[in-house]
Design a protein around this nucleic acid. Structure first.
Lengths: 262, 262
DNA sequence: CGCCACTTTGAATTAGCTCAAATTCCGTGG
DNA sequence: CCACGGAATTTGAGCTAATTCAAAGTGGCG
């Protein structure tokens, strides 16, 4: 279990470079650096904080809205969705987390978490007390830097989400979602040519602000355009032959009078 | 100049309680606490960091995307919009900032800011170096707490924005926008019964993910429903007789088969 | 006073939603 | 191993909220 996540180097070893994709090769290099950074940060945390480790399974809550804040979490493997609930009862997936991402920042402001954090898959969470982190930061300033960088990244990522939802048509939003998922996998050194979505169409739609039918149609259109294709069995497995092509598609869907997809 | 912001107590002194609004009174009390918290944090920063002060005017950039990160900012008065630009050239207002809000967190992760921060009005910005802040945090741990609380609040706020955009119809989104603006003013001890939007319909629409015409129509409908009304002259001045009524309206627009507004 | 940017309102169009039905997948129990 | 049932997905058809296009109104400011 989880060995694919615990050994990113092994994962990339088993992945031959796609045919004639120089850009992909460049990606692999930078991905390697990115995953190295994640690994280093995880190592730093492990050594300085001796975090509790906890194995979670799909559907488990890492923390829940209303719970008293006291701990932060880091995802060592697996996939997590952040689910927000508004005062008036609307529910939405407001974030997705991958290996190396921190969880629980939403709780720091008010003394209690404001979202649910739900595992989408089997995975391992590292847990530590916020006050212990602060103490450790006094000894190891790079810890504080890592914390702030993680929070800053989350802010930036949230803004990107908002921009996608506000400025992209449905098809492009789905393409951008897939691109982001693939990019996130690449950052943790996982393969990106064949990815498994851990969400139903309904969840994806909820995250992207559209209905499940629209998600399904968008995926069908992307497949018809050969930007993605489904594995033989099951529609949760998606192949992305060229991640860059998705970004290019997002571009074209912005161009005035773009035919986009049929 | 700015005296209305520099003396929130004076502002609330000149504001009589609305007719028979017990809830508003409760608001005023909690607002007073909130604005007190802002004032205290500002005082703490002033005393420990001796920040540079800078007066900005509408349209001035506090910082810009691509600029090297090194400083953080706090808004002492005025109003600021955060404008994001995606790699493919989409532009969007992704955040609004009020008195006491921190600016520049987006720059911490990558060594450069990723958004533009633009003043929407005359205001005063306090500026200090990030590394100086870290040094000061070692002496005064409450500074670090304040920093983290501010970052956490920003994360929470961004998620709320995303939820509005994804789960609310246009009219409710505009209502929620007004409600949030009023709430933000209340938090800094400013009057909320009569507010001046510092944004054009186009900017509001850009922020909320709709066209300027839709914003205009939504405002007209809200006015027709007496949830807001415009000052005699000028359509940037908006009166909100009862802020809570806006929240209630958002609710009703979620109810199945809601007639909403005509 | 007149220009210009902003706003409002209307009418036609459309992207995405709702409703509905058929299909596929997957776990479960026989 | 296979049959069955529920959940997820796909696809179609019609509908609606929001957009686009257009025109007229308003206000601020030199």
């Amino acid at each position: 279990m989880l060995d694919y996540a615990l050994s990113p180097a092994a994962a990339s070893r088993t992945r031959p470079f796609p045919i004639g994709a120089w850009a992909q090769h460049a990606d692999a290099v930078s991905n390697h650096c990115a995953s190295r950074e994640i690994v280093d940060t995880l190592a730093l945390l492990r050594d300085t904080l001796a975090p509790q480790r906890r194995v979670v399974h799909a559907g488990d809550a890492i923390y829940q809205a209303g719970e008293r804040f006291g701990r932060l979490f880091i995802l060592n493997s697996g996939f997590v969705k952040i689910v927000g609930t508004s005062a008036d009862g609307r529910e939405q997936v407001v974030g997705l987390k991958f290996r190396g991402d921190w969880l629980g920042f939403d709780g720091m402001a008010n003394g209690e978490y404001s979202c649910d954090s739900i595992a989408m898959d089997t995975g391992e969470i590292w847990t530590f007390r916020y006050d212990a982190l602060l103490v450790a930061c006094a000894r190891r300033p790079e810890l504080l830097t890592a914390l702030h960088a993680a929070m800053s990244r989350e802010i930036g990522r949230d803004r990107d989400s908002l921009m996608s939802v506000c400025t992209l048509p449905a098809d492009a939003r789905v393409a951008e979602f897939l691109r982001h998922w693939a990019e996130s996998l690449a950052r943790c050194g996982l393969r990106t040519d064949q990815i498994t979505l851990r969400m139903t169409r309904a969840e994806i739609g909820n995250y992207l602000g559209m209905t499940l039918e629209t998600v399904s149609r968008a995926l069908s259109r992307l497949a018809r355009a050969k930007l993605i294709h489904f594995a033989e069995k099951g529609r949760r497995e998606i192949c992305i032959p060229e991640v860059d092509a998705l970004a290019a598609f997002v571009q074209t869907s912005l161009a005035p009078a773009s035919p986009a997809l049929q």
